[in-house]
Amino acid sequence: MLVTEQDRLRQDIDALVERHGHARSALMPILQEVQRNYSLVSPYAMQVIADRLGIHPVEVHGVVSFYSYLSEKPKGRYIVRLCRTISCDMAGKTRIARQLENDLGIEFGETSRDGAFTLEWANCIGMCDQGPALLVNEKVFTRVTPAQVHEIIAECRAIFGNQAHQLREGLHS
């Protein structure tokens, strides 16, 4: 049976609501999982979540727009978050930033056209003793040198390509 994207999203959200409950306090965990699975919290997702929790969609939008790790626009498969706060700044984040832009071909705040990378600034990620530091999704890289930037990206690309391949396989089988 053909299920539309929206149906699938709705089913996913229903499963999350089943797990986390209908109370407003379930909102954050639900949003976080939707964000992780879909790389965004779409307007439709916000409305379904609002409906299930008995709150207004604009309230969900208010929450999504408040937190840096939730987004209403699609993010890349890999979100590179470079710390720009003082210790990493002093440790040379500017050169890392430039190299990231050069190697990814995008600027901060942008997502690459293939949907693989989003490049963002982060405020202090708690790696001040080992700056410059960055996060790629959940993984932390410390004492990053401009020369390492390419390696980090290449590693992600390898995995991304692999997964894309698997995804295609899955669709055809």
Partner: peptide, 22 residues
Amino acid sequence: MGAGAYVCGEETALIESLEGQR
């Protein structure tokens, strides 16, 4: 989990966040 907001280190903001609020 938090979701990326420094202010949630403030205890009442943290509680708001736990409750699914901004």
